[in-house]
Amino acid sequence: MSDAAQPTAAEVRAAAEAVKAALDRHLAAVERRSGEDDPAVYEAFNQLAAAAETYDELLYDRYDEVTPFEIPGDDTLPPYTGPEEPNAISVLIRRDYAVVEPQRLLSQAQRVEAADVETGTGIGDGAPGTVHGALGTLFGEFEPDEIASRHKEFGLEEGDSTLWVTASDEPADPGEWLEAPFEHVDPQRVVCRFDVSAVFDDELDEDDPDEGDDVEDDEIEDYDDLDTDLDEDDDLDDGEPEPLEARER
């Protein structure tokens, strides 16, 4: 970092003072908490984490030093404040993919378009020739769950995914939220949440690098005894991976 972009010593000192004040607020909230899920404690915790992270960053930028504290990620949900018996729920899903084989993606989209033209359901303007056009064709043809289970066929590679179930007092009016479907999510109305991420894979590997290696070589004496007979035309469906972490109320 250039000298011009470095924070001043006064800014670092102010960040340190902010951490001290946040520590006092957190302790005070803990001392007078009303229960295990007191929202005041949760808020004070988040403020302390944010102040400590800011201080750590400024300290490093100014003096090339770090604190001995690990700032925890916000991997917990706030206390639930929604209705005990919801009249409606919303299921919010996000799945990330990387386009790793554009040609495969284009080929699959071309097949879909050609089949639609043959059956009279296509517009006949030719197969999509761009990646964004191919994505529109495939996601218009297949359900998201099917794309998730067949992503490799479409030249896609899975990234992180998350699913949130949120409670509502009443169902939304038709068309009410379509322009901004994820804009007004209240974390305190999340009933449960399921995440899938390579980060969790890495954590499992670090915790137990030998996990999954329980089968000894001598446990399989004759590979001819294994049933490996598969028809050549059988499609192996990897399926959608099970969530590695689930947070429930």
Rank of each mutant, 00 (worst) to 15 (best):
Y42Q: 05
F45W: 14
P72A: 11
V41K: 04
E43T: 08
D61L: 14
N46C: 11
P72C: 09
R62F: 05
A50R: 04
L59N: 06
P72N: 10
V41N: 08
Y60D: 14
L48G: 08
T67K: 00
D56P: 00
R62I: 09
G73T: 02
T67H: 06
Y63I: 12
F45H: 15
L58E: 00
A40P: 11
F69E: 06
Q47G: 09
E53V: 01
A49V: 13
Y63E: 10
E70K: 08
A51Q: 14
F45T: 05
T67Y: 06
D61H: 07
L59I: 01
A52G: 01
A44P: 08
F45C: 09
A49Y: 10
V66E: 10
A51S: 15
E65W: 12
E57Y: 02
Y60K: 13
F45A: 02
D56M: 01
R62M: 06
D61N: 08
T54H: 14
E57K: 09
R62K: 06
F69G: 07
L59R: 00
Y42S: 08
A52H: 12
Y60F: 15
P72V: 04
P68Q: 13
E43F: 05
T54P: 02
Y60Q: 13
Y42K: 08
P68Y: 03
V41Y: 13
A52T: 14
L48K: 03
T54Q: 09
A52C: 12
Q47T: 06
E70R: 09
E53N: 14
Q47A: 11
A51H: 14
A52V: 05
L48V: 07
A49T: 09
Y55G: 00
I71Q: 07
Y63G: 06
R62A: 06
Q47M: 03
N46W: 15
A52K: 06
A49C: 15
R62C: 02
A49W: 03
A50P: 02
E65M: 12
A40K: 05
F69R: 05
V66Q: 13
Q47W: 13
F45N: 13
L58D: 00
